[in-house]
Structures are given as structure tokens and as C-alpha cells.
Design a protein around this nucleic acid. Structure first.
Lengths: 227, 227
DNA sequence: TAATAAATTTAGTTTAGACTAAATTTATTT
DNA sequence: AAATAAATTTAGTCTAAACTAAATTTATTA
């Protein structure tokens, strides 16, 4: 019956997507917190989304909410918009990684498929955004995440930094200082067996960096298979 | 009291701006037609806009509506967004002039001042959009329009095409074929006194074009003062 | 297991911004 | 100037999406 995906609905679907990504349904309260809205408002909305045809979510009272395939498609569309936009703002308009979120948050709801296609092409169809998050493909498949924690890298293995899971400005500044940024190539020189401290060589930089687990458990990498 | 300029309000202000640009206040019916909304809805909205502090419009029953200085600022902000966006879409993302309007229509309401500044800079602070319309400056002054009709160009005068006032695809295609596009330099070789037919030399093109008043009264130019 | 706390839902309001139908005002003709 | 037409306004309704307060359900703890 209904056909329109309002901004608000798109936001709900987006947050349900990543709250339920961990396996269990998204709870009313968590959703409310993410959306900055009262829990009662969430209940109202998810009931509507469950009763639309086709339903966008599966919902049982007190049991939380998950996306139907239709809901997931819609969510992935918004997520693709968001992450492509963040990438475009950084690459083509010179934004820094910490300025892009709120801009993309607004633009994601209004750009056309044409616009999406043009910026994707201009960027060479990237697979990760500036934060390292995966970008769903044009046909709305979320790529499989091959990344692992830096802390799991063994001696002599090489890898590429692909994500830093943290909003902590100090940490991010510290990593920037070390040139340990997304895209950087690294190789493990040594791992201390007791405290997990790693000695890391950063490609194109002399000497090495020493990182404790407080850092290596926040940084994700893709291991380079020697070919 | 109110502080938020919703999308809808921005659209009203924008259309009031250019409907009242001709001198007389914008009428309820004309506004309704432009906005694709019932006349009664317009009355409701402009009453609200007149009673907000500070008022955005001046309104007297049955007399139409004009912008206050505050309303005009808000309108120029939206118009600047729109025209910069159209320009950016054409210059930087390869849109054609006839595809940009609806995209800009949606984006104009959501971009930040940061975004506006960045695209303006990337474009070299342009003064006209791809349709030839003037772009308000960053401090929201609408530049004075120095353009005149091509039909007013005298023999031997040179000018630059700056606007074609028409949505007619045939005409626009015809002009494109002649390379008579925005930015083109032209010189009048001859004007026929009875039927106003002009013989025009187009810079960088051999031979000349012959244009009747049906065309020369749609094309605007800026005359080049020999310096 | 009863009592308390936390999470969720229901019920009823509110606001923006549209709508229709009816009433009123201004403009145009005869 | 009266009659008709066109434009505008009033009044009341509707929907999306939020809200608060109260009620209910589930989870936790003594």
C-alpha cells in the first residue's frame, strides 16, 4: 500500500540494519537511543513498518525487530549512499574524515540513482569508505569483510590497514602521526608473547612503531597473501 | 519564535522571490501553481510566514505577498545553493544542462555552508549557472544583471552569450548545433532593418549564422566593451 | 517466589503541512 | 450597477512522526 520511504523510515532501517548485524534483533531502547527519539516513538514506527506491504521489518512485541529482505535492500541503499558520499566528500572535495558524517547523513536521503552512479564511477567504485567501512555494491550486496584485528597478525606477515574502530581523537591523531592510516602497508617484525606488544614496520617509513593491545585491538587489517 | 526553515518554507520563499521579481507581489494562485499545491495551502503558509518573528513575508489579505529583508536573505541562500549545485553537477560530475534541475532541487535544502563554500571554490566562484542565471554572492547579494537581448546588438558589436531563456529542446539543440552556447563570443555582421534578421559571426567558427527575432529575442548577451 | 527494576507498549496529544468544501472578496461583463 | 466569474480565505480534516504519562510485560534480585 505505502510506497514512500521517508527520511525517517530510512533512518530507522539503517539503524536496525547495523544493530541487528550482531545476530540478535534490535531492541526498542537501543533504536531509540541511536535515533535520538523516545522509545514509544520507536514502537509506533516499527509497528507501521511491520504492517506495510510488503513488510519492511519482522516484529514481535517485546522481542525486538529485524529487517525483511525488502527492508534490508532499502537499508543497504541508504548505507551505500552514505558511504559513497563520505568517500566523495573526502576524495573530491577535500573534507577531512571527521567532518563528513553529518553532511552525508543529510545527503544520503536525497541523492538520485544517477548521482550515486556518477560519484561511484568518479571514485572508481570503491569498496571501503574513509572510515574503513564496507560499501554495499550497486546491486546492494554487502561485501564480505575479510578484515581481522591487527593484534592477530603474526611475525613477518604483511597487511594493509583498512579500518580503525574508534572515535577517539587522540588515538586517531596518534596513528596519523605514525602514518598508520587507512591504506598503509605494514609488516610485523616481532610480537612480544606476554604483553602482546607488536613491533611494526610501516611501509615507506624508516624505523618501526611499537604498539600495545589497546591500539592493535582497535585497528583492522587485510592480510596480504604473498602471490 | 520559530527558527527552522523547513524545506517547504524554503520553497515558498524561493518562489515568492522570483514571482515578485517583476515588481508586483506574488499572488496566492501563482504561488500555488509553482509549488504544485492547493491555493488554500498557500494562504495558510504565508499567514504563518507573516506572523513569525522576525516576519519572513509581508502579507495583506487579497493583496499578494512579498519578502521582508529576512525572507529575501533566506530565499537568496536557497537560490545560491540551487545555482551553485547546478553548476557543480555540470562542471564536475558531467551532467547535461537539462538533467540538473531536479537533483539541485533536492540537494539545495540540505547542503551545509561548508559544502556550499567548497563547491563554490572548486568552481572558481562562478557568477552564472549553466542556464545563464545569476548566482547570488556568498554574502547574499544578487549581482546586477548587465545582460541584454541579442536582438539589441548593433552592427560590428561583440558580445558573449550568457543565457537562453527557453526550455524548448528544439531551439536549444539548434543553438548547440550552431555552437551558439553559453560563453560563446559573437559579432554582428549585419542587421536587416525590416525583419530584424541578424547575420552573426561566431568566434572560432567559419562562415556566419543567420538568426530571426524568434531566436534573437530569447538569447541574452553581455556586450564586450572594447578595452 | 514475591518484589523491584528495566524495558516496552498503549493511549492520547501535538505540530507541520498538506487537503476539500464552503464562504467571501475582488474583478469583469453585460 | 447587478450578475457572473475568478481569486482568495476560512474552517475543518488528514497523515507522518514526534511527544508524555500511564499501563503492562519481562528480567533481576533479595
Amino acid at each position: 500500500m505505502s510506497e514512500v520511504l521517508t527520511n525517517s523510515i530510512q533512518d530507522y532501517l539503517k539503524h536496525i540494519y547495523d544493530l541487528s548485524a550482531e545476530g540478535h534483533p534490535a531492541s526498542t531502547n537501543d533504536l531509540a537511543a541511536r535515533l535520538g527519539v523516545a522509545p514509544a516513538s520507536v514502537t509506533g514506527m516499527i509497528q507501521r513498518l511491520a504492517n506495510v506491504t510488503p513488510p519492511l521489518v519482522r516484529y514481535q512485541k517485546h522481542q525486538g525487530v529485524t529487517l525483511t529482505p525488502e527492508g534490508e535492500r532499502a537499508a543497504l541503499e541508504v548505507i551505500r549512499h552514505h558511504r559513497l558520499l563520505e568517500t566523495y566528500l573526502v576524495q573530491s572535495l577535500g573534507y577531512s574524515w571527521d567532518e563528513v558524517h553529518s553532511e552525508a547523513e543529510k545527503l544520503e536521503h536525497v541523492i538520485s540513482e544517477e548521482f550515486e552512479a556518477r560519484i561511484a564511477a568518479a571514485l572508481g567504485n570503491p569498496i571501503r569508505d574513509p572510515h574503513g567501512d564496507l560499501i554495499p555494491s550497486a546491486d546492494l550486496i554487502m561485501p564480505k569483510d575479510e578484515s581481522v584485528l591487527l593484534s592477530s597478525l603474526k611475525r613477518n606477515q604483511e597487511a594493509v590497514i583498512c579500518k580503525v574502530q574508534s572515535q577517539n581523537t587522540d588515538l586517531l591523531k596518534h596513528l596519523e602521526g605514525l602514518e598508520l592510516v587507512i591504506g598503509a602497508r605494514v609488516k610485523t617484525l616481532e610480537v612480544s608473547p606476554y604483553d602482546q606488544v607488536m613491533k611494526l614496520q610501516i611501509h615507506g617509513r624508516k624505523g618501526f612503531a611499537v604498539l600495545g593491545p589497546a591500539i592493535t585491538n582497535k585497528v583492522f587489517i587485510e592480510i596480504l597473501h604473498k602471490g
